[in-house]
């Protein structure tokens, strides 16, 4: 069961997602243990594997630290749904094989605790709690290719082999 953790906030930045005091490591498990710490110190206790973060505009603004994506992936969060994403964070997600879902009005369509199921192929979020299907605009094909290959480096290696 994928539960939504909704943060009705714009501009949730990489310093909140993974504070710089933890950037002295790139160990995924350690980064995961501090995921979202300066936004919500209890997040890591509440979040179960597969859960989903939902937020407002400009999620992931600030630093280029890919550690932000690693901490979210390390915490086994299955998706981030935001009204928009900051550029470098968005790119980092794709490069890490993690699908950033852009959804207008996300924080109003989804309530904290809602149970969600995501159909990436058809661009549909099934809000099981509200019994509602919400469409989102899928990523461009080239980005989906990178994600399906498991990330940018896997994508490049695969292309070079071909």
């Amino acid at each position: 069961m994928a539960k939504a953790h909704v943060y009705k906030r714009d501009h949730i930045n990489t310093d909140e997602i993974i504070p710089a005091r933890y950037l002295n490591t790139d160990d995924r498990a350690e980064l995961a243990s501090h995921c979202m710490e300066d936004l919500d110190a209890d997040f890591i206790k509440k979040a179960k594997p597969g859960d989903i973060i939902v937020a407002g505009f400009d999620f992931g603004c600030g630093s280029s630290r890919e550690h932000a994506v690693w901490s979210i992936q390390g915490a086994k969060i299955s998706a981030v749904i935001a009204q928009s994403f900051a550029r470098i964070f968005y790119r980092n997600c794709i490069n890490c094989g993690f699908y950033p879902i852009e959804l207008a009005d996300a924080v109003n369509l989804i309530n904290d605790g809602d149970e969600l199921e995501i159909d990436y192929a058809n661009g549909v979020i099934n809000n099981k709690t509200q019994n509602k299907k919400i469409e989102f605009k899928p990523l461009p094909d080239f980005a989906i290719e990178i994600i399906n290959d498991g990330g940018l480096l896997e994508h490049i290696s695969k292309k070079q082999k071909v």
Binding site: D26, S64, E66, I88, N92, N95, L152
Partner: peptide, 13 residues
Amino acid sequence: GVGSTDLAAAIAT
């Protein structure tokens, strides 16, 4: 500015 994966790809290619 880029993240570590873009950086890695650019360093190599």
